Structures are given as C-alpha cells and as structure tokens.
Simulated scan of single mutants.
Amino acid sequence: MAAEAGHGQEGGLTFHPLDQFIVRPLFGEAGDPVHWYTITNATLWIAIAVAAIAGLFVLGTARRAVVPSRLQSVAELLYGFIHKMVEDVAGREGLRYFPYIFTLFLFILFVNFIGLIPTSFTATSHIAVTAIMGFGVFIAVTVLGFVLHGVKFLGLFWMTDSPLILRPIIAVIELISYFVRPVSHSIRLAGNIMAGHAVMKVFAGFAAIALISPVSVLAITAIYGLEVLVAAIQAYVFTILTCVYLKDALHPGH
C-alpha cells in the first residue's frame, strides 16, 4: 500500500495505485511468468493469514482457562459470534455446516486485516480468490438443496402465494437472481477491498507534494480507519449471505 510516487520526465507527479494488486513471483526475475505452482506474494500473505488463524486458535484454546486470556477471549468471541449467526439465520439444522462457514469468515477477516499492513498483499482484492469462495458456496448449497429435497428444491423459484398468471414470470426472475448470486457474492467483496486500497494509495501519492502533504496524511489516516471497518464488515456480509443461501437450501419452501 505504500505509494510509489515520483515525478515524471515532464515534472508531473506520477503514481500507480493498481500496482499493489499485481501478483508477482517471490523467487526469480521480475516479469517471470506465474504458473499454478509458482510461489507468489499472494501465496505468502495467504499463508501468513492461515498461520495467524491457526496461531490464534491453537494458542488461545491451549489452556482453556476459566478466566480466559486475551487470545482465548478473542477466539471465543469469534466462535460465539458466528455460531449465533448461523443458528439465527439458518436454524439449528444449519449448525451442521458451521465449521465451513466459520472457516470462510476467519479466512476473509484475517486476509482483509493483514492486507492493511503496509507493503502487504490483499488476496481478497482479486476476483480469482473471491470467485472461488463465492462459487464454492453457490455450488455447495445448490447440491445440498437437491440432495435434501430432490426436485422439491425447485419450489424455491415457484411462488405459490403469487397469482397463477404471474408465477412463470416470477420464476424466471427468481432463477436469474439465483444464478447471479455467486457473481454478486464475489464482486462485492473484491470490489470493496480493491477500491479502498486504491484510494489510500492515491492519497499516499499526493503526500509527495509538500503543499498538500498534511491534508493527504489526514485523509490517509481517515480512510485507513474506514478500511479497518470495511475489512470486518465485508467478512460479515459474505458470511451472513452464505447463511441466507444455506437457509434456502435447508428450507426451500420458506
């Protein structure tokens, strides 16, 4: 996120706010091709996020003290928060799928927060990462719906409470809306994270101008605080939408 600002050949200020989203190999020469097996900056920071999650829950729950430590309190707070969300939205039947939903929440939350560290890489700013999670949820809940209910799952698109003449039209609209879910689920997360980081880097570039440097620093501070909030909110939004989709799969008639 640190700005790579400078003065161009004609004396103008130049900076590249989207450079921070480029996936680069950690080893080898700059510009080397990235293959599926290449260790990149994205790989590194995802691994750091996974290690941080494991560290929090391994260290935080190692003692299981009656009077919890700070780490144990954070681990229990996150666990209880998502557990209650799943139960409230998807019902008690949804608790069977709590580990999957909890894993999604933790991964997004930690990747978002770690991505706010200067010079880090935010994997959730890439649609390739969020699409895997979004389409993974879509495929999982769709398969689950058919496994549990068979063809009755299609009742999700047939509104029996509507007038008969309108039901086919509503069914088409609901079907389109259903298949748009993974797209909106993915783009919402990636778009919000990318936009916030890009704006911060733009203001960081203006910090090179002495006249507006104080204003730029204040703006970066304010936006950074907002991005901390956005990082948590986007993890929450992705998770609660997953719970809503799971509810549709468990109770298609509601």
Results as ranks from 00 to 15, higher is better:
7 H>R: 12
142 T>S: 15
121 F>T: 00
129 V>W: 11
174 E>G: 04
190 A>C: 10
33 P>S: 09
161 D>Q: 03
220 I>K: 10
13 L>G: 04
209 I>F: 05
74 V>W: 14
47 A>I: 02
110 F>R: 05
55 G>R: 06
102 F>H: 10
117 I>P: 02
224 Y>S: 03
38 T>S: 15
6 G>S: 13
216 S>Y: 07
62 A>V: 14
157 F>D: 10
246 L>I: 15
88 D>Y: 09
167 R>W: 05
19 D>W: 01
176 I>M: 08
50 V>W: 00
173 I>R: 11
230 V>A: 04
112 N>A: 01
191 G>W: 13
182 P>E: 04
174 E>K: 15
14 T>R: 14
151 V>M: 04
197 H>S: 01
204 A>L: 12
153 F>L: 02
64 R>C: 05
224 Y>K: 01
211 L>S: 15
119 T>F: 09
183 V>T: 11
48 I>T: 04
189 L>I: 13
57 F>I: 07
60 G>L: 06
232 A>D: 01
252 P>N: 01
86 V>D: 12
141 V>I: 15
194 M>K: 14
86 V>Q: 08
217 V>D: 08
124 T>C: 07
129 V>H: 07
154 L>V: 07
151 V>L: 11
96 R>A: 13
183 V>P: 05
38 T>M: 12
197 H>D: 01
242 T>N: 09
219 A>K: 01
224 Y>M: 02
94 G>W: 08
40 T>I: 12
119 T>R: 09
114 I>Q: 02
45 W>V: 00
206 F>S: 03
70 R>T: 13
168 P>R: 02
52 A>Q: 02
39 I>N: 03
124 T>K: 10
164 L>F: 00
20 Q>A: 03
4 E>Y: 02
4 E>R: 05
244 V>S: 06
70 R>K: 10
159 M>F: 04
120 S>N: 11
153 F>S: 05
136 G>V: 08
163 P>M: 10
93 E>Y: 05
99 P>T: 06
28 G>T: 11
